[in-house]
Design a binder for these strands. Structure first.
Length: 337
DNA sequence: AACCCTA
């Protein structure tokens, strides 16, 4: 049976293809786009992860109000030779179940820009504990820190800005702004079937550069930074998945091996701290026009995430090196109590 | 009381 592939796209190849291309623009490769409604349409090496076959996959999810609740509509996977749009609406739970081992596997690196919300949705909708992510947003801030170039406002970099940076990709993706406007007008944008050409284009654009960005990031990070990145990614994956049992059903966070720690001067263990903030008191943490939280972020240099809950209390998550996290903890507790 | 940022 021949499966016709009506759609194709270009991806930049994440490796040098010979001396001639050195210092030139990345080589573009034309790859097919597969729309997946059944697991059999996905590559075997993805469905059955193996230590003999480590994969790097660009990863993203689209949906409606994607978080604890909401609807997951499409899961995009970008390989070097093809892009797969996993249609979660058509394929349903059965299809996601088939993808679970890959999403939880240490042998498959999921390259993703901001894993928190996607991970939260995968966990609460399908019981998937997203594991082994390479979060490009975290990587960017670590590389900036490594260069001693802390951004003044210390805000996470946007996907558009990351792609625009010539050190990572150097492409303009302003179409994303149009999609944002469209999504605002019609939040159900991702639910319609069959997928329109525009939906396919937008979904593909969100992942097709990620394997290349991964390659550019790997060039810049040393062994210690890679550990820090992996651990911080793992903490971001689970932070919004907290429930009454904490993280009991999640695997333990890896720790940086001593021999690697010894090589890096002042390399500190990464940690996650959660502070309950009674509803209505979050304003104390955020402050006028965000002045308070901004000053905490700047003085502590930790990731500070806020989640408003429906329950009696909201939560602040603090992620970063232990010392910085303790400092932020103290300031926030002081404001709230 | 204060409501930032990202997606």
């Amino acid at each position: 049976m021949v499966f016709a592939t009506p759609y194709q796209t270009y991806i930049p190849l994440p490796f040098d293809s010979g001396e001639e291309h050195k210092d030139h623009e990345a080589v573009l490769s034309m790859v097919p786009i597969h729309i997946v409604t059944h697991a059999s349409q996905l590559p075997k090496e993805f469905l059955f992860p193996s230590s003999k076959n480590h994969l790097i996959v660009g990863f993203d999810c689209e949906g409606v109000q994607l978080c604890h609740y909401g609807t997951l509509c499409i899961m995009q996977l970008a390989f070097l030779d093809a892009i797969y749009l996993v249609d979660v609406i058509q394929g349903g739970e059965k299809l996601m179940k088939a993808c679970k081992p890959a999403l939880e596997s240490s042998f498959i690196t999921k390259v993703i820009h901001d894993c928190k919300r996607d991970s939260e949705a995968l966990y609460f909708h399908f019981g998937i504990k997203l594991h082994n992510v390479m979060d490009t947003q975290i990587a960017y801030s670590l590389i900036e820190k490594q260069r001693g170039r802390r951004r003044s406002s210390d805000n996470p970099i946007s996907f558009i800005a990351l792609l625009a940076d010539p050190n990572y990709c150097g492409i303009s993706y302003i179409e994303k702004n149009d999609i944002r406007v469209l999504l605002k007008k019609d939040p159900k944008f991702w639910t319609y079937r069959p997928l329109s050409e525009m939906m396919i284009q937008a979904a593909v654009d969100d992942v097709r550069f990620l394997p290349y960005v991964h390659h550019k990031i790997m060039e810049k990070l040393n062994e210690q930074m890679l550990w820090q990145l992996a651990i911080r990614g793992a903490l971001h994956c689970r932070c919004f998945c907290v429930n009454d049992k904490g993280f009991l059903d999640w695997p333990p966070i890896p720790t940086i091996p001593d021999n690697i720690k010894a090589k890096g001067n002042a390399l500190e263990e990464e940690t996650l701290s959660i502070i309950n903030v009674p509803s209505g008191r979050m304003g104390l943490v955020i402050g006028k026009k965000g002045a308070s939280i901004l000053s905490i972020k700047n003085s502590c240099n930790a990731d500070i995430l806020i989640r408003r809950d429906k329950g009696p209390s909201d939560k602040v998550f603090i992620i970063g090196p232990v010392k910085q996290v303790r400092m932020a903890e103290a300031i926030i507790r002081g404001r709230v109590c």
